[in-house]
Design a protein around this nucleic acid. Sequence first.
DNA 1: GTAGGCATACCAACCGGTCGGCATTGACTT
DNA 2: AAGTCAATGCCGACCGGTTGGTATGCCTAC
Lengths: 195, 195
Amino acid sequence: MARTKAPNPEVRRRILDVSLDLFATKGFAATGVQEIVTKAGVTKGALYHYFKSKDEILFEIYGKVFGRELDSLQRIVAEGQDPERTLRAIIVDLVVHTADSTRESAVFARGGHAESPHWQAMQEQWRRYQEGFRQVIRDGQESGVFAAKASPEVVSWSVFGFTNSMHTWYRPEGRKSPAAIGDELADLVLTGLQS
Amino acid sequence: MARTKAPNPEVRRRILDVSLDLFATKGFAATGVQEIVTKAGVTKGALYHYFKSKDEILFEIYGKVFGRELDSLQRIVAEGQDPERTLRAIIVDLVVHTADSTRESAVFARGGHAESPHWQAMQEQWRRYQEGFRQVIRDGQESGVFAAKASPEVVSWSVFGFTNSMHTWYRPEGRKSPAAIGDELADLVLTGLQS
DNA sequence: GTAGGCATACCAACCGGTCGGCATTGACTT
DNA sequence: AAGTCAATGCCGACCGGTTGGTATGCCTAC
């Protein structure tokens, strides 16, 4: 029954892209809806046609990142390699993926909106990712491959802290490739875990 | 000459303290001046009597943290111990100090205000801190105490990333003391740097 | 003809910031 | 010791501008 003018996916995409830019640069609260639509070359009507609120734009941005990341971790773990190889693969993957989405991670790093249910769902996914990461370390420690003295929490936070801060210094045009950076970080962590 | 009513330092302190709380929790842009004064139990008149703008409150918060941190690093380096002891002392000091000012570091982590000259001055101080930190690593590498393969940049970002993300997970009532956490991180990094 | 894509005009609430004024003070005069 | 004066701490009503969000209807494709 719905014969209608075709929706323009380009419009929606542009709103998301411009929002991502602005949120990453100036922050969510400091970005105005008017600013988004002006830069995107659309109108408020269009924006509120595709999104029910400014918040919804933010959560759509969040959503994309975490789903992929969790999948990636589970896939690597499922390969069943030894802990060292597994941990290295996770770290490299995380760094590469983060380098590939610096704007998203900048938005995430700024945080905010602690009250929204969307935000809490996000946090839950992120918590599961952390847990998966730490489990790899624990497995390695139990099998004696990794030294037991380093706590999985401290190790994981040095890695997550690294990636969470990448958006402040990583530049795609820099000398080192994301994979090379990831390998270096993995070297550091794996050597640090040696028993 | 000064016939005047005495200023009330308590008022100023409360404004700063409440601002710090709100900026850390909701972010700078999302916090209204009205909200600050209401929570602090003062009026806008009082706030704008002590500060010329909302921004000035923010920069007063930033200022306190970085001054101390840079001093601390220089003092430790000046002691002239071997690279391992020096690096450990710097890391522990940084973690302890960050744990002691989680609200400030949450505000800093959210960033923002890239255009202000105050902000750029801040960034410059922060850059000098990083440089000092890396120099310690380079010295250790040149003297053969540290392995040469890890780049000082990656090492420093894993430490700074760690501290920059502490505000998301560190709780004073937790089991481990900040000094113990700092030691663990230092263990990880120093082992990772072993040649 | 009719349903949905999107523009436009508009809203109340709120934003950071200002300003005239009053109360309080200590120094100075008497 | 009492009174005067000027400077300051602080109040709160008010400002123009902007905020996120909406109501309405034109236009187009079927």
